[in-house]
Design a protein around this nucleic acid. Sequence first.
DNA 1: AAGATCGTACAGAAAAAACTGTACAAACAA
DNA 2: TTGTTTGTACAGTTTTTTCTGTACGATCTT
Lengths: 186, 186
Amino acid sequence: MQPFDGLSEQHIGKILKARKRVIEAIGKNMDLYGITQSVGHLYGMLFFSEKPMTLDEMGKEMEMSKTSMSTGVRMLLDLKMVNKVWEKGARKDLYEAEADWHQTFTDYFGIEWRKAVEANVIALKRSAAELRQLQETEEGEGELREILSRDLEKIDGALSYYEWLDRLIDTLDSGKIYELVPKEKP
Amino acid sequence: MQPFDGLSEQHIGKILKARKRVIEAIGKNMDLYGITQSVGHLYGMLFFSEKPMTLDEMGKEMEMSKTSMSTGVRMLLDLKMVNKVWEKGARKDLYEAEADWHQTFTDYFGIEWRKAVEANVIALKRSAAELRQLQETEEGEGELREILSRDLEKIDGALSYYEWLDRLIDTLDSGKIYELVPKEKP
DNA sequence: AAGATCGTACAGAAAAAACTGTACAAACAA
DNA sequence: TTGTTTGTACAGTTTTTTCTGTACGATCTT
């Protein structure tokens, strides 16, 4: 992970143990970000690395194939949890962990939630329109009427929830969330 | 899913089509809640059902085993997305979808995020303590000093992020989030 | 130009997860 | 009591995901 030149075995051991605990905790809880424990572990490793790492170094450290490192890093790049580092005339690509976890958090949930909101709202609106049309063309039947209004009520409830969620996501995207819930303890 | 007594085939078809679109959209996007597409689908079905359902009814509707319904419902209960309904002298257990999606949202992320925060904070603090101790007992060595302060800085950064997240979760738990981001459009 | 090295696409192997059917304990009915 | 019925534990099967090794195009070196 890095050079421990001139440190006693004992010191190295203690440092690695402390890091390992954190790395494993991170790995275990990264499933909230929809990533594997391995990839979470990879992130944790990069987090503690003092200098950017190459795929080969990661593979050696994780005792996994370079291919897995490649796909893992790509996932982390997509999630903006890892950045590519440009170094003058370097043969290999270098990567480092994004240190700003607030940013990582808002990026991820901003993107994923928005995706879900958009897909669901489209479906809800389309179905609501269909049901409303049915409601208009068939004014008679009591039973039909009842079912339609019940379904539409549910759909409208869902839509109003998504409107709220959309506004919440806006606060993540814009950074306004940090005004509402300040980074520094009040 | 329910009785469509006295409705024309055509009407039933249109209603089911409208529901199906929504149910499938829900199923697809439920992975944010860490659940399978099948279980998401199950939730969607319960969402549109006008009366609480039994495991057998769910199994029939989903064309899946009762065992799967049992485990699926249990997951949804854990996430508080489904409620058990108590009916006078009923043989079978009855379940209904939680209709308040705001509540579902805050419950889920409240629970899951808190879990992650607690686990990670414990690890971070424990490791920080170890490193700080090492820092105190070994005042000399420059290289060791440097590594320790770098690691501790990273850990402190992470801890301050988790403090923020913890406060955000508090607003979910307490409902204060709805003051910060009102349910009704401003 | 040739030769070396890097990252990744792809196919197959290994591991994990989802799903099913059977079996059985608990709760109820007669 | 005995006979049903219900929910779930568990073992085995199927499906999905993760991981690996090989192969190859792209890029850099000489």
